[in-house]
Amino acid sequence: MDRNGLEKQCLEVRRLIVKSVYEAGSGHPGGSLSGVELLTTLFENFLKFDPKNPKSDSRDYFILSKGHCAPLLYSIMAFKGYFPVEELKTLRKLGSRLQGHPDALKLPGIEVSTGSLGQGFGVAAGIALSLKIDKKVNKVYALLGDGELQEGTVWETAMAASHFKLDNFCAVIDSNKFQIDGSVETVMGVEPIKQKFESFGWECVQINGHDLKQVDEAYQAFLSHKSGKPFLIVADTLKGKGVSFMENTEKFHGKAPSPEEFEKAMIELGEKAL
């Protein structure tokens, strides 16, 4: 998909995130909105997958390690035909396949259930190791939050991915600078992320996670790198990107908009409310 198409798609994904969280009455819009360009670009232009055959041997693996941002993943999966867009209305409701955090047993296309932070990252690395020893060419991608880096197992995994030279593994940090209790730097600083991973033996790039050109180039860099190291994209992003009152605050980390806020958000996103 070209840049123009991606821009439109990203806007549409943002609308679906806000709508589905509003319909659900709860959820995590802030970190979903910050990762839109990162994930839309991945699914549109890089990740190999087949919604009709989600377990295909030739697929690449994507794992949403920051599982609370399920509305972001669900919105993109709906677009790609894993399930009807209409189904987004069932998010977080009794009996729905769209659980508050992704559930691999309920929704085809989810590789592993996530939500407990740090775990998806380690699982993704394990998949990468298995593919590597089988000499397979499939790639593994994981999306993490910056706050998530506070989990200790993240660093156990970072060490092991480097030890096993998992150059088929690309981790993306959606560094939106906020977590539920406040700014990451005030809660428990994680910077400098890039240098930390470099010292753990990773090949790293740092980009603006909303600049589609930079996002595209970062994935290209992963696919063409020959360093023999696992690859990290540190993406500086804006929490709540696209909805002015959700931006740069922890307020909408885990909260749905009120009816008035929803109305305002949809207007900002170029659509009249439902």
């Binding site: 380690g122 593919l131 200790g152």
Partner: peptide, 15 residues
Amino acid sequence: AECNMLLFASGMSIA
């Protein structure tokens, strides 16, 4: 690193 061992174990089983 037992936690990471079981995360890798999970990933390898998925593959």
